[in-house]
Computed example of a mutant assay.
Amino acid sequence: MTAASETDEPTVPATARLGRTALTVADLDETVAFYRDVVGLAVQARSERAATLGAGGSPVLELLADADAPPRDRTQAGLFHTAVRVPDRAALGAALERIRDRGTLDGASDHYVSEALYCTDPEGNGVEIYTDRPREAWPRADDGTVEIGTAPLDLNALAAESDGAAEASPETDPGHVHLEVTSLDRTRAFYADRLGLGVQTETRGASFLAAGGYHHHVGVNVWNGRTDPAGGRGLAWFEFLLPDAEAVATARRRLSEADAPVTDREPGFEVRDPDGIAVRFRARTPREP
C-alpha cells in the first residue's frame, strides 16, 4: 500500500466533503415518502427505478429500486446509518417534530461536537439527522484530535426551539456516513493510509475519520460482529466531492499507482474498500458549496 508523503496533499484533499449516499431499496414509493415527509428532503428527480432527494437544489440521497435484490444478511458489512446535517437547532427541532408525527424516534444524543436524532427508514436503514456545534467549541485531545462522546439530549428544550418547518432547510447537506465493517485495522488502513483521511477519534470498536479536520466524514465500527463483505439491499455507494476536475484526476492517478482497482463512473470514478463498499469521487458542481 502506498500513501502520500507528509508534504503532499492527501488523496482526499482537505477541501473535500461528503456527497450523496445511494441506497438500494425494494419499495421505492414507501422509501421516497419517508425521506420526503420525515427527513424533509425534496424530491428532485423521479423515475420508476430511481429517485434523487435533496435540499436547496443540491442532491443528498439517491434511491435505487431493485425488488429482486436480497435483504442484507446479518453477517454482511454495510451501512450503520446515513447522516443528514441541518444548519441549526431550529431545524433539528423541526426534524424532531416530523419524526414524532410521522415516524419513530429511535434515539437522541449530544455528541459534544453535534446534537443528533436517530430513526430508521422503512427498509431498515439507520438515519441520523444532526446539527454541528461551532467548530471552535469542539473538545479536543492534547494531540488535536476531536473528542466525540455520547450524552443525553434534552428533547423538550430542542422541541421548544423548532422553527416548525415541514421541509428541510436549503442549507441541509450530507454530513457523514457510518459503516459496519469486518475489520477496523483493514478499514482504517484503506481510509486513512490510502485515501488520506485523518483519524479524528477512536473508541472501543469504532474509528471516525475525516478530511480537513471535520469531526468525521466516515465512521466505521465492528460492534455487531459483521464477518462477510457488503451485499444485498441497503448501501449501494457513497461519494466524496472534490474541489475540481484536477483534484479528481489526481486522486484517480494516486489510487491507480497504489494498485487500487479503479472503475470510471461518469463524471468521476469509483473504488471499493476492503468490504466491497463502493466509494465514488467527483468534482463538486457550482450548486454544491
Results as ranks from 00 to 15, higher is better:
residue 215 H to Q: 14
residue 139 P to T: 03
residue 140 R to I: 07
residue 95 A to E: 01
residue 52 T to P: 00
residue 276 G to Q: 03
residue 183 S to N: 04
residue 284 R to D: 06
residue 219 G to T: 10
residue 122 P to N: 06
residue 64 L to A: 03
residue 45 A to I: 01
residue 228 D to S: 08
residue 239 E to Q: 12
residue 87 P to T: 06
residue 128 E to K: 00
residue 158 L to F: 07
residue 172 T to V: 04
residue 89 R to W: 01
residue 144 G to V: 08
residue 218 V to I: 14
residue 99 I to G: 04
residue 227 T to W: 00
residue 129 I to K: 02
residue 260 A to K: 08
residue 246 E to C: 15
residue 174 P to H: 08
residue 243 P to W: 09
residue 157 A to W: 06
residue 47 S to P: 05
residue 225 G to Y: 02
residue 241 L to H: 11
residue 2 T to S: 15
residue 233 R to E: 03
residue 107 G to S: 09
residue 113 V to R: 06
residue 83 A to T: 10
residue 243 P to T: 13
residue 99 I to M: 08
residue 161 E to A: 15
residue 142 D to S: 10
residue 245 A to Q: 14
residue 173 D to C: 15
residue 255 L to E: 03
residue 152 P to F: 02
residue 286 P to V: 03
residue 117 L to P: 09
residue 262 V to Q: 03
residue 21 T to W: 01
residue 25 V to E: 03
residue 36 R to A: 10
residue 52 T to L: 05
residue 164 G to T: 09
residue 153 L to Q: 09
residue 198 G to I: 05
residue 151 A to N: 11
residue 289 P to H: 12
residue 7 T to Q: 15
residue 239 E to S: 10
residue 200 Q to N: 04
residue 112 Y to P: 14
residue 72 R to N: 10
residue 29 D to I: 06
residue 191 Y to F: 12
residue 275 D to Y: 05
residue 183 S to H: 05
residue 34 F to Y: 13
residue 3 A to I: 11
residue 252 R to H: 12
residue 201 T to A: 09
residue 196 G to Y: 02
residue 229 P to D: 02
residue 151 A to S: 14
residue 26 A to V: 12
residue 267 P to K: 03
residue 219 G to W: 04
residue 217 H to S: 12
residue 226 R to S: 03
residue 158 L to T: 07
residue 228 D to I: 05
residue 115 E to I: 11
residue 43 V to W: 00
residue 109 S to C: 13
residue 189 A to F: 01
residue 112 Y to L: 15
residue 216 H to P: 13
residue 209 L to H: 10
residue 117 L to T: 12
residue 193 D to M: 12
residue 31 T to C: 02
residue 21 T to Y: 00
residue 144 G to A: 07
residue 275 D to E: 07
residue 207 S to T: 13
residue 10 P to D: 08
residue 150 T to M: 15
residue 171 E to G: 13
residue 148 I to S: 05
residue 190 F to L: 06
residue 85 R to Y: 07
residue 15 T to A: 15
residue 74 R to E: 15
residue 20 R to A: 12
residue 84 V to E: 00
residue 264 D to K: 07
residue 229 P to Q: 04
residue 78 G to I: 06
residue 151 A to P: 09
residue 145 T to C: 05
residue 12 V to P: 05
residue 229 P to E: 03
residue 272 R to W: 02
residue 193 D to K: 11
residue 57 G to D: 02
residue 216 H to E: 12
residue 190 F to S: 07
